[in-house]
């Protein structure tokens, strides 16, 4: 077995451990998308093509509130702007022609980004791909369940599903915090983000939090 196979399998295993959460989250996405006026087919196609949960929720909440297509697309772009920073981070670890790198870059999602990080400035790209696969499968399957079976659930807030999203990212954060040098940076990011919440559009506080990592330039 080559090193690529080993990494890919390891990624699959790690990603599978997290896949139950995208499954739960995307069930609620399917419900919300249909409530906002998409057909079940459209909700499923959106998850298949986009696969960036927070951006999809942002787009749907603007669209569902009657905000129109362009503002909804922009809201998703801002919410997903953190992937710009992540894409720059993984770029040196992705070989090949530009179009091939563009395709490889699509496998960056929050858990795969965290798991593939070697913490020496490089990323294990096969682990990235492996960790992405179960995330994608979970996200797709959950959207199907939510879009077609959402009527069975009723009021999802009452069920506490809004705790899933932050708890999921907290699991990824705690894994990072095991390394002491990340702690002040994480705190800095949290403070920057919270300070910007009242003033900036959703998503921008998260991208701005990435600036906390610039402390490494000292």
């Amino acid at each position: 077995m080559t090193q690529a196979d080993v990494s890919f399998r390891r990624g699959l295993r790690l990603g599978a451990g997290f896949a139950s959460v995208p499954l739960l989250l995307s069930i609620s996405f399917g419900v919300v998308a249909v409530d906002a006026g998409l057909s079940p087919v459209q909700a499923v196609v959106m998850s298949a093509l986009v696969h960036a949960g927070s951006g999809q929720f942002a787009a749907i909440s603007v669209f569902g509130a009657g905000g129109g297509v362009v503002p909804a697309v922009l809201a998703s772009g801002l919410t997903n702007s953190r992937f710009l920073a992540m894409g720059i981070a993984v770029a040196p670890s992705l070989p090949g022609r530009p179009w091939s790198r563009a395709v490889q870059g699509q496998t960056v999602v929050d858990p795969s980004f965290v798991m593939a990080n070697r913490h020496d400035g490089t990323f294990d790209r096969w682990l990235l791909f492996g960790a992405f696969a179960p995330q994608y499968a979970g996200w797709f399957t959950g959207t199907v369940l939510g879009a077609y079976g959402g009527d069975l659930l009723g009021d999802t807030d009452r069920l506490g599903v809004d705790a899933i999203f932050p708890a999921f990212f907290l699991a990824l954060l705690v894994a990072e915090l095991r390394r002491p040098e990340t702690r002040w940076v994480a705190l800095g990011g949290a403070v920057i983000a919270l300070a910007l919440v009242p003033f900036a559009p959703p998503g921008v506080p998260i991208l701005a939090a990435a600036l906390a990592a610039l402390v490494a330039l000292r």
């Binding site: 927070s54 953190r82 920073a85 992540m86 720059i88 981070a89 929050d110 980004f113 965290v114 990080n117 913490h119 020496d120 400035g121 932050p166 990212f169 907290l170 990824l172 954060l173 990072e176 915090l177 040098e181 990340t182 702690r183 940076v185 994480a186 705190l187 800095g188 990011g189 949290a190 920057i192 983000a193 919270l194 919440v197 959703p202 506080p205 998260i206 701005a208 939090a209 990435a210 600036l211 906390a212 990592a213 610039l214 402390v215 490494a216 330039l217």
Partner: peptide, 16 residues
């Protein structure tokens, strides 16, 4: 910088 990037991004996602 890249090695430290995940922590503030995840922290921001959690608190927001």
């Amino acid at each position: 910088v890249v090695g430290l990037l995940a922590a503030p991004l995840m922290a921001a996602l959690v608190v927001t």
